[in-house]
């Protein structure tokens, strides 16, 4: 992994994540324990694990929304800065849409980073989210799947180099899930680094290049997707993949 990063000459690629000794406590309770992790600068990484494993906390820390109790997070070898934050985007489990139209939500994000081509990009994003015919509808009157597609399009409006997704398809039907997964694959192919939290094994198999498996706040396993789903190394991941309940 490291040699690949070096050979492509991207020693300071801000899409390359390194985590060292990461710990986090909430109200005196340890929710993340000593996590070491190094990710390539390309592809889709699925962060998997049972409910309460610490997935949402972990990606908030990686994105800089939460300050960890201990350890370091670095992107391209440097600690998170405001500039880096501007090149990342995050879609949470329940996205907060502005109380405006669909188009106005996208415009809000578009005008944060660019001055030109707003309307061209707006049309492209509306098409991507398959919401062109609902551009003027108040965003909060959309269905769950449409809201999630809009949230994803809004995140992409800022042209992120790193995209975080937290269980974005957890409450969606198969058609909406497929639509979102297609977009995820597409932006990954275009060079955006994707970190996707999911507890859906099928989704992991469909979109992930590698899998980070959390178990009760610890990193139980980090393997390429193929390995993870066929012969997981850790007992916890094996149990999870086989559908056994591991507590």
């Amino acid at each position: 992994m490291t040699s690949e990063t070096r050979s492509s000459g991207c020693g300071s690629d801000i899409r390359q994540l390194t985590v060292r000794g990461l710990c986090h406590d909430i109200a005196g309770k340890r929710v993340l324990e000593n996590i070491d992790l190094s990710l390539q600068s390309q592809g889709v990484t699925a962060i998997m694990g049972a409910n309460g494993a610490g997935k949402s906390i972990l990606i908030r820390i990686l994105h800089g929304l939460l300050r960890p109790s201990g350890g370091t997070v670095s992107w391209g070898g440097r600690a998170m800065t405001r500039d880096m934050l501007r090149s990342q985007a995050f879609v949470p489990q329940s996205p907060v849409l502005l109380r405006r139209s669909v188009a106005a939500n996208l415009k809000f994000a578009l005008t944060l980073r660019r001055r030109r081509d707003i309307s061209t990009r707006l049309d492209a994003l509306l098409a991507l989210a398959d919401l062109a015919d609902k551009a003027d509808q108040p965003a909060r009157t959309l269905s769950g799947g449409e809201q999630q597609r809009l949230a994803l399009a809004r995140a992409l409006a800022t042209d992120p180099k790193v995209l975080f997704l937290d269980e974005v398809t957890a409450s969606l039907d198969p058609a909406n899930t497929l639509a979102i997964e297609t977009v995820i694959r597409r932006v990954s192919d275009d060079g955006t680094r994707v970190l996707l939290v999911s507890h859906d094994l099928g989704q992991g198999k469909r979109v992930a290049d590698d899998v980070v498996f959390l178990h009760r706040g610890r990193l139980a396993e980090h393997s390429p997707a193929k390995t993870f789903f066929s012969q997981p190394v850790s007992a916890e991941a094996r149990g999870y993949c086989e559908g056994r309940i591991v507590l």
Binding site: H63, L65, R82, L85, R86, Q88, A89, F90, P92, P95, V96, L98, R99, R100, F108, A109, L112, T158
Partner: peptide
Amino acid sequence: EYDETFRSMAVPWRKQVAALLWD
């Protein structure tokens, strides 16, 4: 409600206040 979204999008504070007032 909006704080985390605005921080994640790195929205400048003036724009945050304007957006809060408008929304």
